[in-house]
Design a protein around this nucleic acid. Structure first.
Lengths: 144, 144
DNA sequence: TTGCATCCGGTACCTAGGTACAGGCTTACC
DNA sequence: GGTAAGCCTGTACCTAGGTACCGGATGCAA
């Protein structure tokens, strides 16, 4: 492989702190890379893609454990094998994501309504029912 | 007001820890409520609505500071006043939310593709380009 | 008016996700 | 082959968002 990256290069390319790479490695999000004779990490170019996946999923509200679940190092095959469970987990995540999108749309609608109505304070609007914000539809929580 | 709630009642109704109410109060997310003669907090019914707003916004990836910004205690009027800035901040949040929705849709599409293709491992798929996952389109981070 | 569940303020602690040293090797370049 | 930049492991610390515990005061019901 001619395209091996040292930790600093990869970190810079991904826009993260070099320490974070080791942290992700400890958390099992990033596979342990090959090493130079002297012990320095040498990452393959694909590591950058994985970091992008991680950062994006994270930005969208997934915990590192959840990301690890999605990105799972371990199973690798593409054909048909008993089932690593990824199919099922992917379906679960998909449902969660769709729920998030739905919730975000409610929020977006509320904000648009508030903007159109010229409200100055969401709290006042939401509590005094003087403008039609659908915040009451939001609750039903349990996350974290 | 006949409908005053003690902290324990409000907490139970909102599904949060009673301590959390005091914490939110300290953080400026929840207005300081009236007190009983002996000093116990007595919340108006609207406090529950506010808590729902907070929990929902939070579930969608906003920090408490951002929620505080949205829910801002302080400005209250509904008509036209110089400008508390909420209009502007609401527009900004709206844009952020729309960006999140767009990102989530990319993720959802990826997952759907992966499921349809029968992939067993997202990492393998994303790195070996053997299936058409658009993960590369995701990056461009800077959040946190 | 006694008793027990709550609530009070204050401080300490916890988890997630990183980030920052410290002290010591490696690599790369002249 | 010397030297600076970069990397190594290990441990300590930081922020966000809560939770828990303490000793003491309150509220309300029998």
């Amino acid at each position: 492989m001619s395209t091996a990256l040292r930790s600093g290069e990869l970190a810079a390319a991904a826009g993260v702190n070099p320490q974070t790479l080791r942290y992700y490695e400890r958390r099992g999000l990033l596979a342990e890379p090959d090493r130079s004779p002297g012990g320095h990490r040498l990452y393959p170019a694909e590591a950058l893609t994985i970091l992008r996946i991680i950062k994006t999923a994270q930005r969208l509200g997934f915990t590192l454990d959840e990301v690890a679940e999605l990105v799972d190092l371990g199973g690798h095959r593409h054909g048909r094998h008993p089932d690593t469970g990824l199919q099922r987990r992917a379906a679960t995540k998909l449902a969660e994501i769709e729920a998030k999108i739905a919730d975000l749309r409610v929020i977006a609608t509320s904000l648009r309504t508030a903007i159109d109505a010229g409200c100055d304070d969401l709290t006042a609007c939401a509590t005094s029912s003087c403008c039609p914000l659908p915040f009451a539809d939001l609750d039903r929580g349990d996350h974290h």
